[in-house]
Design a protein around this nucleic acid. Structure first.
Lengths: 336, 336
DNA sequence: TTGTACGCGTTATCAA
DNA sequence: TTGATAACGCGTACAA
């Protein structure tokens, strides 16, 4: 049972209105009583109730963030960007997990609405456009980061998967590779397809035909296992390089290579995607595409704040960056 | 401006009291009107305001979690455990970062109090006992996870650093090592000291004297760099094995070894601490001490819930587990 | 310069 | 079975 302005009012022998005003520095209150009341508030350990303030102001200064799983270091980094900008703007963030379950994701959003968050940020959602219909009821700005669902939806911040993948493939082509495999995933259909689009675009632009047999999305329980499962097929298909949907997949592939004595990068070049921390620690360090994770979160939050201030916003598409490390090499016997 | 029970009341031609009761399934309301009102609520897209409910009930069904930085994959996993248990119990979690700054940490706690969170969980705090004094004012249960400050403080869940370190050293001793280095850190004084205590206890118990020159806490900006910085001294001191404060330090050491052509584990055995994900991907995979991260979070949250239900709680000390992988080996020329 | 009264959305108490 | 009213803690229009 916290102390309220009424308690202070009683102690000071004034009305609670005066206390409220003194605490907020209203010029209407004399300096003397203001000082006295503030001192009293400190002594009594008063902290204003954001709950009561919210009820009145109809704002909670609160942002809800939905992520699929906390196990994904990639997502977590985005949350870091969100929290940073939100905190600086005086907003607190609710963090909730959907466990990659679309139903649960909607439950979480519902809970956020019940708590009257001022805005919602959804990271790597698989629900996507469903929000459009729900949004008629929930009068809350929703920003999607790296949404995984096709279709138009509200506001979004995302990475340019297509040109990022192109970057990766162009790098491999420039190293002389022609038989370049791709290990994808069925769990994130949109970005998977777009990275594949970039893959194909790079081949087209280089005027090189590509062999569909080199494209695979093995079924497996995790990204790592998908990478491990991909090696056999790709070696049989005589791939000399592989572009992986993400770093975890690439790391799985790398582990399989070590197990089967396939030398990386000499026998097989590998490119990942994301640039998560382990990519740097692995042997050899992984050549990969770096996503601006923190920036994604920051931008999404800025967009949310703009939306709340009724400023114009525009969907954002961010560029990625190729990070060349040691898992890719010139194809032997290929002209420079 | 959301829909309220008054809006529904008007539409239904009843009082808002009736609506409230119907929605909550009060037996006092006839089935007919209950059904009619519920249908109306659905149609109008009504969601109750947790803010208003909180004001009345004096409970927010909310837990505030303070972490030092989101960059630490270790901490984040604990948050996962917290979120899981909290969500299941109908609580939402606020996540906030202190950026390893004690002042900021208190600001965050203050903000949580202002928001009237029902409880607070602080992970790897460096503030620690300061809470005792603040707690007189903040009438909120606070549970500390792996607190980094000496002294008594409220409620806590932590890992048994001493016996965990002993586990690591005993493993190395059993492999024949006698000159075992330790690379520590000054940034987390308490756990660092306790791991060092465990290190020394293991030597004592084995009846082997240890050489203080083997103990080092290099100054560096990050754990990784601390590991890298440690190699020179330890090789000069003729260490045949090294126990590192955490996995990142161990990985840094590993990277330095590769750079200077020190073969791991044949020339140098390395043991880490934490068992973060990259420990598995690194070459060679890291022998390490696994902290029950998710469980730490789960237990802290259960403790919080118990506290809220005025049940007895007891501080928890969890055991760690030795995970033997490939970065440790029998000392050459040592008897089995 | 300070106080009274009302409302934010909800639930609980009491009366009808 | 239903309704009027007060209360939770706070801010503000209006009155004094």
């Amino acid at each position: 049972m916290s102390i309220t302005i009424k308690d202070i009012a009683k102690a000071a022998g004034v009305s609670h209105t005066t206390v409220s005003r003194a605490l907020r520095g209203s010029p209407a209150i004399s300096d003397e009583t203001t000082a006295r009341i503030r001192q009293l508030a400190r002594d009594m350990g008063y902290t204003p109730s954001a709950v009561a303030q919210s009820l009145l102001s109809r704002q909670t200064q609160t942002i809800g963030v939905v992520i699929t799983t906390i196990a994904d270091p990639f997502t977590v980094q985005i949350v870091g960007g969100v929290e940073e900008v939100a905190q600086a703007a005086g907003y607190s963030v609710f963090l909730s997990t959907s466990h990659n379950n679309p139903e649960q994701e909607l439950v979480v959003v519902e809970t956020f609405h019940r708590r009257r968050v001022d805005a919602i940020i959804v990271i790597s959602s698989r629900v996507g456009s469903v929000y459009s219909s729900r949004l008629d009821q929930i009068q809350v700005p929703i920003v999607l980061v790296n949404n995984q669902e096709e279709g138009d939806y509200l506001h979004s911040v995302a990475v340019d998967d297509i040109s990022a993948a192109q970057l990766a493939i162009e790098h491999l082509i420039s190293l002389g590779h022609r038989r370049i495999g791709y290990i994808g995933t069925a769990t994130r259909p949109k970005s998977n397809r777009r990275r594949l689009d970039g893959y194909q675009a790079a081949f087209r632009q280089a005027g090189i035909p590509f062999d569909p047999v080199l494209i695979r999305s093995p079924e497996a329980d995790s990204d790592i296992e998908r990478g491990q499962a991909g090696l056999g097929h790709l070696k049989a298909a005589k791939a000399t390089a592989v572009f992986c949907y993400n770093d975890l997949t690439a790391i799985g592939l790398l582990m399989a290579c070590r197990q089967h004595n396939v030398a990386v990068p000499y026998e097989l070049s590998i490119v990942g995607f994301d640039d998560i921390e382990p990519a740097l620690y692995v042997t050899p360090p992984l050549t990969t595409i770096r996503q601006p994770r923190t920036k994604l979160g920051q931008l999404a939050t800025k967009m949310v704040l703009d939306l709340l201030n009724e400023r114009e916003v525009q969907d954002q598409i961010l560029d990625c960056e190729l990070v060349v490390r040691k898992s890719t090499a010139q194809l032997p016997n290929s002209a420079q």
